[in-house]
Design a protein around this nucleic acid. Sequence first.
DNA 1: TCATATATGTGAAAAGGTTCACAAGAATAT
DNA 2: ATATTCTTGTGAACCTTTTCACATATATGA
Lengths: 215, 215
Amino acid sequence: MTRKRISESTIHRLSLYYRALSLLEKENYETVSSKELAKREKLTPAQVRKDLSFFGTFGTRGLGYPVRELKHQISSILGIDRVWRVALVGVGNIGSALVSYKEFAKQGFQIVKLFDNDQRKIGSNHKGIVISDIANLETELREANIEIVVLAVPATVAQYITDDVVRAGIKAILNFAPVNLKVPPDIYLRHENMSMELEYLSFALVNNHVPKRNS
Amino acid sequence: MTRKRISESTIHRLSLYYRALSLLEKENYETVSSKELAKREKLTPAQVRKDLSFFGTFGTRGLGYPVRELKHQISSILGIDRVWRVALVGVGNIGSALVSYKEFAKQGFQIVKLFDNDQRKIGSNHKGIVISDIANLETELREANIEIVVLAVPATVAQYITDDVVRAGIKAILNFAPVNLKVPPDIYLRHENMSMELEYLSFALVNNHVPKRNS
DNA sequence: TCATATATGTGAAAAGGTTCACAAGAATAT
DNA sequence: ATATTCTTGTGAACCTTTTCACATATATGA
Ligand SMILES: NC(=O)c1ccc[n+]([C@@H]2O[C@H](COP(=O)([O-])OP(=O)(O)OC[C@H]3O[C@@H](n4cnc5c(N)ncnc54)[C@H](O)[C@@H]3O)[C@@H](O)[C@H]2O)c1
Ligand SMILES: NC(=O)c1ccc[n+]([C@@H]2O[C@H](COP(=O)([O-])OP(=O)(O)OC[C@H]3O[C@@H](n4cnc5c(N)ncnc54)[C@H](O)[C@@H]3O)[C@@H](O)[C@H]2O)c1
């Protein structure tokens, strides 16, 4: 268990390193320097080395990092060297897109349960999964040993469903609805907010923005 | 033109304030304190006041901020008090979901052009927009006066299409493909990376993470 | 009119995150 | 063997962001 407190930015960059390493592996690189890794994800070599140093010493001086080995280490740090059982609530536009996305499963996020409140959808088979009735959310989340819930429901019902999800003992939620959900402090809650990124672009264009620090 | 350099975090929080203010307006609030605004978006009152202070003085001591007025001010700062002409490339799973999403248009992001390379899709009418051939990307982006391009194509072709988009004079790109795109320094490029958020949840669960600073 | 309560706006302090710079380890060439 | 080159790992310096704390301004009630 990581006892040092790691910043969110570092964790996000681990995802980037993982992605870059996957590509490097495909390109048959044996080793990679912090310089090359940094270049591929628009970061600095010092940043790469500092981030990795929080978790151990993975490199060889004069040579760099072993690609396969480091990739494996990062997947272990991120906890994606295993399968996570994920449920998705709201099989609408965005929900359907997420279910169809094969990369999630490849990274260990396996969507094994779908929920909706639309009678036309309930019971139907969607990409090999039968859509469950939202009325049975709590019991079925428990029975299926779900660990992560993805919310793709209208903003108006998101809080209500969240309360149910929390009651089912779920500790991690990814929310696509543009609303700030109230959850107990021991729940990990993340938001996917696409409007925010569009609004950033809008701001940047209008103000000719030069960020103080780069993303 | 904002000459002071504003941090990305501040801009992202402006989006949150805007969202909260929209709701407050619906709830018929006349004024709102930094305290209430902070509570609704899980921030601190000082943070709210500091952020707003970068752009002017909008509040009244002893009373708070006028909801309608502040909302309007923020929409002007973010540049969403106007219509942006957006094109979307790749009308697949996620692309279709984005086109169907009415909130974008309500916030001024109007998707007016769709592109794909699939012959079965080209020429067909999708939510009132005829899908164009990717072969005509550059000319049609220019002719339609597109200002923002959303990329929802496979990662393998994303860089290639980006080069075209840049050649068409587009200055703002929102990319959904999990790949770091190379663009000239005067282009605003943002990434929507859903795996990253899932991986954060995974990390948090595995490591019992307490972030150093909250999101 | 005055007292009290409320809440902003903002310098200054504190906390956090990034970059620098270099000692030290390892590979490679001579 | 030794020199040279390369590149890591990491304290310390630097820069950015957040939080604190309070002077200041307004509203409200007596
Ligand atoms: N579509 C997008 O591109 C997009 C982009 C950003 C954010 N979002 C957000 O994602 C969420 C879903 O958007 P969407 O476009 O997929 O909407 P949608 O209407 O297509 O899908 C919502 C789904 O949720 C189901 N649902 C409604 N109430 C429910 C309930 N009480 N219990 C269970 N299921 C319920 C509906 O039957 C539907 O299948 C919304 O909050 C939206 O704001 C969507
Ligand atoms: N579906 C998801 O939930 C999801 C989640 C995260 C990221 N993404 C990313 O979003 C992108 C799209 O994903 P998707 O699931 O919608 O895939 P998809 O295959 O359903 O859609 C891709 C679309 O792009 C079109 N396309 C392919 N090559 C093209 C080209 N050269 N020019 C123009 N159009 C072209 C295809 O015809 C198709 O319509 C991918 O990069 C994916 O990694 C998707």
